[in-house]
Design a protein around this nucleic acid. Sequence first.
DNA 1: CGCTCCACCTGAACGC
DNA 2: TGCGTTCAGGTGGAGC
Length: 278
Amino acid sequence: MPELPEVETVCQGLRDTILEKTIAKIKINRPNLRYPLDHQALSTFHNHKITAVTRRSKYIILHFDRHQDVILIHLGMSGRIHNYADTTVDKVKHTHVEFDFKDSTAIHFIDPRRFGFVHVIKSTNLNDYWHGKRLGIEPLNDELTATYLHQALQVKKISLKAALLDQSIIAGLGNIYVCEALHLSKLSPYKITNTVTLEQCDTLIHFIKIVLRKAIQAGGSTLRDHKKVNGDTGYFQFDFHVYNQESKLCRLCEVEKIIRVKQNGRSTFYCTACQLVS
DNA sequence: CGCTCCACCTGAACGC
DNA sequence: TGCGTTCAGGTGGAGC
């Protein structure tokens, strides 16, 4: 499911529903997702209150009152979190973790493909954790400057598409928003990183921020799995210029048709007329 | 070391 | 209807 806008949408939904709620019980229905679930560590959150929900890249972080650890949730490709008005509802297929609250509401972690995971980490070790994952900077942060990106791209010789998917440069972009940002920037996904100029980096950053902000406003993109925590779909998929728009007319030049190619094993959608290598 | 590929899973969509 | 194939929003380890 989820790139940064989808994860941010889920975080916002969680803030609306579970802040200040106290965990009654965390139920684990499956011993492992991508990684083994730490039953013991998760049980230490019983009777603790959620004080904040934050996001780093595509990770959701639950913070608690009087607890030195945080719960990290990654949604993988197909993960979602659903809010329930009571703890006794019938759970849907692939509900792997249930967080029951003292007020008898609940949130469930659902993930058919099980590429997602739930980790317990010491708050003080969070920075080390991000460091270990080689996470780069947040795209919506002011830290993302043309100078930073230019420097990062200059030392590499890979396609611009691959570089933007590299989480150690910018953390949070995925296949959809990289395709969209490249198109708006009129840059070829095949352009080699060390040929990207400072000005082009500036343009790229401008459109990365725009496309992410718009997508967050739209509640993310629902292709199949992504849902807000209340069950609503996002609707940014209706604003796609290139992603999943194969053979449709390019919305920039209105002449050429969007094509789909394979890059590093993943689909790239782009306009051969607008998105130049030079 | 830098980079590409593939596995990890389930399920939906499509072709025959 | 059913079976086989391909594809999907991410990540990280193997191998070149």
